[in-house]
Amino acid sequence: MEKTLYNIYKTFFKVGTLLLGGGYVILPLLQSELVDKRDWIDNDELCEYTALSQSIPGLIAANLSIFVGYKLKGTMGALAAISGMITPAFLCIVILAKVLEEIIKLQFVQGIFWGVGIGVLILIYLAIKEIWNKSVIDKFTFGVFFVVFLFSVLLKVSPAILIIAAIFLGVIRQFRISRSGSGGEK
């Protein structure tokens, strides 16, 4: 399939439609659609983009779509990919939002939501475990995790403030490493 803007949009529309249950599902979907079926990018590139998408702000699925779209056809390709990705999500929610007030009163719908809420807790637990394995790798990172966790749970500090504090910590840490002359990370 040719890499036209329309085809990029269409492909990401399909991936966006199949993307149920959180952003982590996007990787296998992109592997199947972009690497196997269309041969637009290779697996190594996809893995590199995934790692980058996780280390910058924003939704992983959105970041990854923009990276791949940009690689395929520059800035316009990036816009085509992200538009395709979010169109199904947007339509679905706008339609549901209209009827939600009505259906949420139904007993069995409440039951389903209650159950899905438990399922989401499991998915959050799995996401924490996945991120934990990649991020909490020594005493220092455990300390960062623990302090942020406490400030967030007990003091309800705004998440943005804690993230900005972590950014400063990272800059200061590297500044001290550079000054002490050892260079690079430990």
């Binding site: 280390s55 959050i124 996401a127 924490i128 991120i131 934990w132 990649k134 991020s135 909490v136 990172t141 455990f142 960062v144 995790f145 623990f146 302090v147 942020v148 966790f149 967030s152 749970v153 998440p159 804690l162 993230i163 504090a165 972590a166 950014i167 910590l169 990272g170 800059v171 840490r173 590297q174 490493i177 990370e185």
Partner: peptide
């Protein structure tokens, strides 16, 4: 690289909360 190193566990802590 250093900012990524400190920001990831912070994100993990927020999510755990």
């Amino acid at each position: 690289r250093s900012v990524i190193y400190t920001i990831k566990p912070a994100g993990c802590g927020l999510l755990a909360a």
